[in-house]
């Protein structure tokens, strides 16, 4: 609750700051305000769809299917799906987070979740093509070749520890049902 109050206070101060900036024509303040709206608009184009799709996923996909393919006993198959799923995820990390949460609720293991989040950050296919054209294909290949094994190693270590402790603090939206 304390955190919520702090957040509200921060947002309020921010709004006051931006309003005053526009009134007294303070350039940096105006610029910051415009950045806010610009970024917010770019999110509005993706986020509602992503949440609706995650909601549909939650009601339609059977727990057993996720558990079998992405659960604790999924082995190498789990990593494979996690990387593939991460690669085709579009948009910023804000989209990957509810997906990760939904997968975990359906029984995906923490190591799969870590792999998925990492892959959605580093191995997104559309982004990769863009990167290769800007920086060079060799750079992209090296980055992939180094990132994917490391991602799996890190996810295996951290994920296994959390899985063994049956860690499930992934849902503070638990009250929703």
């Amino acid at each position: 609750m304390k955190k919520k109050f702090f957040y509200f206070a921060a947002i309020f101060i921010y709004l006051v700051f931006i309003s005053i900036s526009f009134v007294i024509d303070f350039e940096p303040g105006k610029n910051i305000g415009l950045n806010f709206t610009e970024y917010a608009i770019s999110l509005v184009k993706i986020v509602p769809c992503a949440f609706i799709l995650v909601g549909l996923f939650e009601v339609w996909v059977k727990r057993e299917v996720v558990e079998k393919n992405l659960g604790k006993e999924s082995g190498i198959v789990g990593y494979f799906w996690a990387i593939l799923l991460g690669g085709v995820t579009i948009g910023p990390m804000i989209v990957a987070l509810p997906v990760a949460q939904a997968l975990h609720k359906k029984g995906a293991s923490m190591r799969v979740i870590f792999t998925y989040l990492g892959a959605s950050a580093t191995c997104r296919i559309p982004m990769t093509i863009f990167e290769a054209t800007c920086v060079g294909i060799k750079f992209t290949i090296v980055r992939y070749a180094a990132s994917i094994p490391l991602l799996i190693i890190f996810a295996a270590i951290y994920g296994r520890v959390l899985d063994n402790r049956n860690y499930s603090r992934l849902d503070n939206t638990a009250q929703e049902n």
């Binding site: 957040y7 939650e58 949460q101």
Partner: peptide, 23 residues
């Protein structure tokens, strides 16, 4: 499903606004 989507979104609004401010 839509209700679930809305609940998730609702919980995210305030933290997301903070992120937008920082960004």
């Amino acid at each position: 499903g839509l209700k679930k989507a809305w609940n998730k979104f609702k919980n995210m609004i305030i933290p997301l606004t903070i992120v937008l401010v920082l960004v």
